[in-house]
């Protein structure tokens, strides 16, 4: 995410200046007059109204308290002080972290599956790709309903399967702890298709000659996987892990549909975004909700910065 900005400053200048063609220079120097402004005007307007100004407003709201009949009163840092004394915040942060960690396990799974899928001469590879891709394009609100039934404590297929093994399954979606595990399982299931697309694309970029050379040197397939595939895939792995962490901290849809507002296990299971939604739109406590939103922003920014810093230690750019 820091890439685009650095590249954006360098790239536009590099093109025209390097070329010796005087004609081109004249064309460029003339500029485009008012045209560019016509091109960007609608976007600049929409982005300012619906995105930039709201950020500033939300920041301001986070210092206010909302009355029952509307109207916001400035209360300084009270909402932020409240964040620290609100025990649901660390709980939801922990929930969000556990959820994200479980969904992150989809990445090593995707690396192995991808490596198998790209085996030379594998039949039905396209068919397999379709199977793994389907969950990714399903609607969370729709599959959440399905998974709630799959995890049903009384007659869901998962508990029936567990009963065959002599295990008495829990009431998944209404028991704290199990509920989060169930939601995260679905999160992993849904994200696998995306991971496979990105990692598969990374895999196809690895030159076949490297494997051929390794084969001649007598490297086993397992050795090739760990010494060639995994190291050369680290840029893709890095990208999907950044995306997974960011979207993990956005957990809402699955939680909302699989558990429901009235679920008694919700306080122990809710995510930061759910707390935001609850305060902003169910309890009309928009000032505090804004502070929760700012907290989410800070956490995501910090985590992304850490990931970019740590990447130097493990990501190999060729």
């Amino acid at each position: 995410m820091s890439n685009p900005t650095t590249e954006l400053r360098a790239a536009p200048e590099a093109g025209p200046e390097e070329k010796p063609a005087p004609l081109r220079r004249r064309l460029v120097a003339r500029g485009d007059g008012a045209w560019p402004w016509l091109f960007i005007l609608p976007t600049v307007f929409g982005i300012t109204v619906f995105y930039l100004w709201p950020i500033i407003q939300t920041f301001y709201y986070s210092f206010t308290k909302w009355g029952v009949f509307g109207g916001a009163k400035f209360i300084g840092l009270d909402n932020y002080v409240r964040l620290f004394s609100d025990s649901s915040i660390p709980q939801s942060l922990l929930n969000t972290i556990i959820y994200t960690l479980i969904v992150l396990m989809g990445i090593p799974i995707a690396v192995v599956l991808s490596a198998l899928m790209e085996s030379p001469g594998l039949k039905f590879a396209g068919f397999y790709r379709t199977l793994y891709f389907i969950p990714y394009i399903t609607m969370p609100a729709a599959v959440g309903i399905v998974w709630r039934l799959v995890f049903n404590g009384d007659f869901g297929p998962i508990n029936w399967f567990l009963s065959l093994l002599g295990i008495e399954g829990p009431y998944w979606t209404s028991t704290p702890g199990f509920a989060l595990a169930a939601v995260a399982t679905v999160g992993l299931w849904m994200s696998l298709g995306f991971n496979l697309i990105i990692i598969g694309a990374g895999l196809r970029e690895i030159p076949q000659e490297i494997y051929e050379a390794a084969e001649m040197d007598g490297a086993s397939r397992l050795r090739q996987f760990f010494s060639i595939t995994v190291p050369l895939l680290t840029p893709s792995i890095f990208f999907v892990s950044v995306v997974t962490v960011i979207s993990g901290f956005q957990l809402f849809d699955l939680l909302y549909v699989m558990m429901g507002k009235a679920n008694l296990a919700m306080p122990q299971t809710q995510s930061l975004v759910y707390i935001f939604y609850n305060h902003a739109f169910l309890e009309n406590d928009k000032g505090y909700a804004a502070a929760v939103g700012i907290l989410i922003l800070l956490i995501i920014a910090a985590l992304t910065a850490v990931q970019f810093r740590v990447q130097r230690k493990w990501v190999n750019y060729v």
Partner: peptide
């Protein structure tokens, strides 16, 4: 051009909840 684009791109790093109330 560069400055306007940079401002627009900065939105990509902001989670959706920050826009929602306004």
């Amino acid at each position: 051009r560069g400055a306007i684009l940079a401002v627009i791109l900065s939105i990509l790093m902001v989670p959706g909840q920050l826009f929602l109330i306004p």
